[in-house]
Simulated scan of single mutants.
Amino acid sequence: MSYAIIGFGKIGRALARAFARSGIEVSVATTRDPESFASDAASIGPTIVPRTLADAVMADTIFLAVRFESYPEVARALPTWEGKTIVDVTNAYGVPPEALGGMPSSKAVAQAFPGGRLVKGFNHLPAAVLEKDPAVNGGKRVVFLASDDNGAAAEVGALAEKLGFSPITLGGLSEGGLLVQARGNSWGQLIFKDLVTFGR
């Protein structure tokens, strides 16, 4: 299984640190030349590999950690996303629901990645929290996941556990997934909830 993070701002770097802590190799990419952020990637760890966007999207599981308005540009990188899992880490705060056809933001993102299996996740924590070691006082920091594909949610949940987190699945994108999606100028109820589980 191969992994990539698209976007190398605060959230992308926080995710990269989680991969580095666990010794799992992950490609990182932006729309810029990889040389422009190679030193930043190297400072996180040797398993963080700068790549072009075209190379990074060859990964099996892709974390979409760009600004929400940039997801269509990433989606155009491939004609089909068949066989790939997209982890939507974006937040559509401030985007009017009517601009998304009334759909939850992750549904709009899913439509842009034809053939891909979309999981909403890792987006409810600020970068400063997400980048910290998820082992907290003998427990594990929670990440919420939502998907219309149970198999994809299970795969991302297993990865979250390898990264040291405690995954909690909320159900479909239009049901429990609304708890971790912004709509207009309102945040989902679970966004910013920094929870820890014990005894799992």
Rank of each mutant, 00 (worst) to 15 (best):
S106I: 08
R141V: 08
T90A: 11
V95P: 01
A127R: 02
K84A: 00
V129E: 14
A112Y: 09
L64I: 05
A112G: 09
A99I: 09
G121F: 02
K107R: 14
H124E: 07
R141G: 10
E69W: 15
Y93F: 15
G115C: 02
K84D: 00
E131S: 12
F113S: 03
T90W: 08
L125G: 06
F68W: 10
V87S: 04
P114G: 02
E131W: 11
V109Y: 04
A108R: 12
K84F: 00
A128S: 14
A110W: 00
E69K: 15
V129M: 10
S106P: 11
L125D: 10
E82C: 07
V142Y: 04
E131A: 08
G94S: 08
W81A: 01
P104H: 05
N137Y: 07
G121K: 01
E131L: 12
P79L: 09
K107A: 13
A135G: 13
T90M: 07
K140Y: 12
G138L: 04
K140T: 13
F68Q: 03
K140E: 11
A65V: 07
A135K: 15
G83H: 05
A92Y: 02
M103R: 15
R141F: 07
F63H: 09
G94P: 04
S105E: 06
V89K: 02
G115N: 04
E69Y: 14
K120I: 02
P96D: 11
K140Q: 14
A128Y: 13
S70D: 15
G121C: 03
A65Y: 12
A110T: 02
V87G: 01
G102D: 08
P72V: 03
G83N: 07
K84R: 15
L125N: 06
V109I: 14
A110D: 03
P134F: 06
M103F: 10
N123I: 03
E73L: 12
K107I: 14
R117S: 02
G94Q: 09
W81E: 01
M103E: 15
R76I: 06
S70V: 11
A127P: 09
G121I: 00
H124P: 09
T85L: 08
Q111F: 11
K120G: 02
G102K: 06
T90I: 11
P126F: 11
S105I: 04
I86E: 00
